[in-house]
Structure formats: structure tokens, C-alpha cells
Amino acid sequence: MVFSRDTEVGLVTAAALVNTLGAEEDRLSSLADLDAFVARWEFTGDRRHDDAELQAVRALRPVLRELWTVGAPDAVAAGVNALLAEARALPQLVRHDGWDWHLHATPPDAPLATRMAVEAAMALADVVRGGELGRLRVCAGEDCADLVVDLSRNRSRRYCDSGCGNRANVAAYRARRAAS
């Protein structure tokens, strides 16, 4: 394990959130989409279930993409610090819903987008502190801009979970077959 469980979940969740804004479609275009995302990634705390909440979460995606792809530790740290300061984050150890001790840095009644931003920022802080920015990538698949978290032991993950790796392998196989 490279990071703590809550850091890994925070990174994977942040990538999944950003990846809802695909090149051809927005998979976070309705309250129902947001409800499904929140349920899938087990976000806790209060919800407003209104368009303002949806728009705030959608607005977070380009911010997180920029932090993910900037590549410079100083720039990521500045962005993380800005997110944490804006949310007035105050880390606290908590246990709930089958999770053992982990950190929350916002109260349960903070807006959903704020809680999402702070969880991503806390996870990114661990990446910066660990000198592991190289684990944050953009999918190497043709025509794919999804984010990838490389949690593999040998730092070899290049593709997202949308089948890009399989498509690349099939294309390479077909090219080898055609050449022989």
C-alpha cells in the first residue's frame, strides 16, 4: 500500500469526479446523476439536493483536473492550500459507517462540493508530501483525457478504467498480425 486507505479513496474519488466530464458527454448533468455518484462513492453528510449543489460540484471538476495535471509540487501545494483555506478545514479523526479511524476536515453540514474539495485536497496533500505526483496521470489511451491514479506497486498503470488499455492492446495485437 502506497497511501492510507482514505487517501487512496480520496484520490480515486477525485479522479472519478473529474472523469464524469467526458470528452463527448457530461455524466454529471442532473441531480439523479449526482445522487448516484454520491451513493457510489459513499459521501456522508448533509445534502441540499438542489441545482446549486449540482452546479457547485460540477464547478469543482476543472479545479481538480488542474491540480492533477499541473505536475509541479509547489503549484499543487498552493492549490491544495487554497482549497483547504477556503473551506476553513479543520482535520478531525472520525469513525463511522464501517470505516475505522480516518480524517474528515469539514463538518457534516458543510456543502457537498466543499466536502468533496477538502477530501480531494487532503488526499493530494499526501501525494505531495510523499513525493508521488508521478502517480497522478492522464489516460494514455487515444482520444481519452480521463484521469488515472496509479496505485500499482511498480508505477506502471497508464490507462483509465474505461477500456482504453484493452483497446490499445487489441490495436497493438492487430498491428503485429498485419505486419507478419
Rank of each mutant, 00 (worst) to 15 (best):
E132M: 12
W41K: 07
D33K: 04
H102Y: 13
A85D: 05
A117W: 02
V127I: 06
E66Y: 12
A120F: 02
A140F: 04
E53A: 11
A85Q: 07
G131E: 08
W68S: 04
G71N: 11
D50I: 11
A14D: 02
V80N: 01
V12L: 15
T44D: 14
E42F: 14
P91R: 06
L31W: 02
A145Q: 14
L147W: 06
F37C: 07
P91W: 01
A87E: 00
Q92M: 12
T69Y: 13
G98L: 10
T114V: 15
A77Q: 13
H104N: 06
R40Q: 13
A52S: 08
N81P: 11
V148N: 01
L21G: 06
Q92S: 09
G22C: 12
L90K: 13
A75I: 08
T114G: 02
W101V: 15
P91K: 03
E24C: 13
D109H: 15
D26G: 09
L147H: 08
R129S: 13
L28H: 00
G10M: 07
V148P: 01
F37P: 08
R58G: 00
L124R: 05
V57T: 05
P107K: 14
A32I: 08
T20E: 12
L133S: 04
P107I: 12
S30M: 07
T44H: 14
L84Q: 01
A82M: 06
C144F: 04
V9W: 14
E66S: 15
V138D: 01
